[in-house]
Simulated assay, not measured.
Amino acid sequence: MSERRQSPGRGVLYGLYQKRLRRDLSAAGAEALPHHVAMIIDGNRRWARQVGFTTVEHGHRAGAAKMIEFLEWCDELGIRVVTLYLLSADNLANRGSDELDALMKIIAELALDLSRQRDWRVQHVGTTTGLPGPLAEALRTAEQASRENAGLHVNLAVGYGGRTEITDAMRSIVAEHHAAGRSLEDLAETLTPELIGEHLYTGGQPDPDLVIRTSGEQRLSDFMLWQSAHSEFYFVEALGPDLREVDFLRALRDFTRRNRRYGG
């Protein structure tokens, strides 16, 4: 049963505007769309309070349901990789225990649900340090159950921190270098951005072309610091559970109209 409130603008005008946005994207062409979209889902707690729920768990459940819907939008448009920022390393230390316990249970359920959706492949990006056993096991199970799937690649950023990811990548590089018996001088000569990128949690994947954040907040919150160096950013005022398809389509239309200069 959905716990989302009815979003505004579901009538005839909404449908017409949605069709117009789709026509704009069709005119831009498939190659103009992002190949990798990263989403910072934010505002679940505020949504729950505004609706009048006594606990924020309802907001997190509504946010999880919205993420399935969001992934369906992405899949239908041919986007190949989506990363969802669901639980940061900071969240593990800063949220109240009751809320955090509920959130981790919801994420575990979401991971397993996604592994059964269409032909989607689920991958956990983050560390299992600090995660409870059931959540870590659910993430592993979702990965294993969907690893042969060839459809939409869904990264679940859980227990994730961008600084920690870069640190872990460097540790992995140093460990491999040491195991090979090579010198520090050799390491200095071979260390490149490409090598570091290969050792990130998302190694082998394209960096996100577009990073979206809901709820009007305009910050990264330690999310994909390395990978988003050349990403485009789009901030949506809607709280996470209230995100509409037209909000997403407008983000894509805006992306297709930008001149990506890659540091210029």
Rank of each mutant, 00 (worst) to 15 (best):
S2F: 00
R5M: 09
S7D: 02
S7H: 03
G11E: 11
L13E: 00
Y14A: 15
Q18D: 13
L21I: 02
E31F: 06
A32V: 02
H35F: 04
M39H: 12
I40N: 12
D42G: 11
Q50I: 12
F53A: 12
T55K: 06
H58Q: 06
R61K: 14
A64K: 00
A64E: 02
L71W: 01
L71Q: 02
E72V: 06
D75P: 01
L77K: 09
V81W: 15
Y85M: 08
A89Y: 11
N91S: 08
N91W: 07
R95G: 11
S97N: 06
D98M: 14
L100G: 10
D101G: 15
L103T: 08
L103W: 07
M104L: 03
M104N: 01
M104Q: 10
K105S: 15
I106F: 05
L112A: 06
L114H: 11
D119G: 07
V122M: 12
T127R: 12
L131W: 06
L131A: 13
P134A: 03
A138M: 08
R140D: 14
A145T: 14
R147E: 13
E148W: 06
A150H: 10
A150S: 11
L152K: 06
H153I: 07
V154C: 07
L156V: 03
G161H: 05
G162V: 07
T167Y: 03
T167M: 09
D168V: 01
A169S: 05
A175D: 11
E176R: 14
E176N: 12
H177D: 04
D186S: 08
A188C: 13
E189F: 01
T190H: 12
E194Y: 04
L195N: 04
H199V: 02
Y201G: 04
G203H: 06
G204Q: 11
P208I: 04
T214G: 00
W226C: 03
S228Q: 07
E232V: 14
F235V: 01
V236W: 03
A238C: 05
D242G: 01
L252G: 03
D254L: 05
F255W: 08
T256M: 08
Y262E: 09
G264Y: 14
